[in-house]
Design a binder for these strands. Sequence first.
RNA 1: GGUCCCUUCGUCUAACGGUUAGGACGCGAGAUUUUCAUUCUCGAAAUAGGGGUUCGAUUCCCCUAGGGACUACCA
Length: 464
Amino acid sequence: MARTDVVTRFAPSPTGYLHIGGARTALFNWLFARHHGGRFLLRVEDTDRERSSQGAIDAIFDGLSWLGLQGDEEPVFQFARMDRHAEVAQMLLDSGNAYRCYTSPEELTAMREAQRAAGQPVRYDGRWRDRDPAEAPDGVPPVIRLRAPQTGETVIADAVQGDVTFANDQLDDLILLRADGTPTYMLSVVVDDHYMNVSHVIRGDDHLVNAARQSLIYQALGWDVPVFAHIPLIHGADGAKLSKRHGALGVDAYREMGYLPEAVLNYLARLGWSHGDEEIFSMAQAAEWFGLDAVGRGASRFDFARLENLNGHYLREADNDRLTVLVAERLDIAADDPAFARILGLMDGLKERAKTVVELADSAAFLTASRPLTMNAKAAKLIAGDAAQVLAGVRDALVALPTWDVATTEACVKGYAEAHELKLGKVAQPLRAALTGSNMSPGIFDVLVALGREESLARIGDCV
RNA sequence: GGUCCCUUCGUCUAACGGUUAGGACGCGAGAUUUUCAUUCUCGAAAUAGGGGUUCGAUUCCCCUAGGGACUACCA
């Protein structure tokens, strides 16, 4: 039974934040596991002690949990399994599938330069492959290399890329254990994936060649090779490698820019994968549909316009209480602040007009402003001239209202406009300016109600 | 340089030998409207180029061009 269980994993190295490409890799692994009722595991590849940091680990876990992509088990830390990796290297040594290499880094550099100069492929030449260890120079700690086959070919049956064939003479004897005894990435991934029973390795395209190398290690060990699936990388809007300038930001940056996790998830799922004409769907729905065969093979470009559109959709669908909390955080308003209730009250009208939480907060800011309002240029124009008389008249009509709701204020303002033979816009626009300090806002009667009678009348009064 | 991968509207993609090459974002026009949005309708917009295979190629093969990955005692 254990043989057929689907186990996927996301294995980031904690040398930075969780960038958008990593998030998508995690998502695809998660989706695949969910689709098959399997498990999705997390493994922190922290064997590079120099570059790994706790801050990065925290950032990655934060990003994952914001997206709701938690692992199904406690995360595994690769560094803690070093002994196991070393054991396996010893096994390989014992079985003759690995050997000690005493070439110094300087010699290696010289070798590569010579190869490059001669126009030859650059790779380890196997100089210690068959040499007697008795010839080992004194005081040089050896690395352990895999004795890889030098002829034949290695084919990776990739679930996304199809069969990819590598000639074995293109793959040199990779290092398993460094001179200081620590395992390299190649060794630890294989060992950990094996012991974690990972059935499907879904990762970035940049690992395709590694798959061939790792496959050689599996073979030397006599272990089953997992199914590989190398998904194309995400490029920037200009088609070049994703850089910070165009989207290779941490997922926390997307939260900061006001995107909702469900929008980011939907966007990412649809980038490089599709299910017919489906564009907007939940992750539960995506999990039902997801399959590696529908993952595209070409790199895709990151498109902020599309993300923004999706975000607008999810914003409109989002719960008002939730959005109000998000806006209040950005506006630095406490839950017992009167402005909090105003924002919540106007949220229906507000969220319909925003693409991001940042815009939402901006558009809600007038609800928290203190009088007298500062007008933007267009609003100032709207209340100039004879608009003051109109505002004074509307205020007088409004003051007389027995109740204060959308229906009564609307009837009142429209009645005033008709009585004075004014187009509604002639009344509503100055009113909007007086109330919000802007020429754009949600429906003016909704604004009146959200602000409340007292504040509304006071704001109008400031302009007459 | 070597090895490997990729190539349908501007972008994300559908069409797994036979379609007027479909959808979505964005863009343009219009409708609705108290502003801005939302919503609705309509429109422009693509098979990188060249050879084959085939009755028939977006689809299969080859070449070219362009893009990308890898080429560490990093992961």
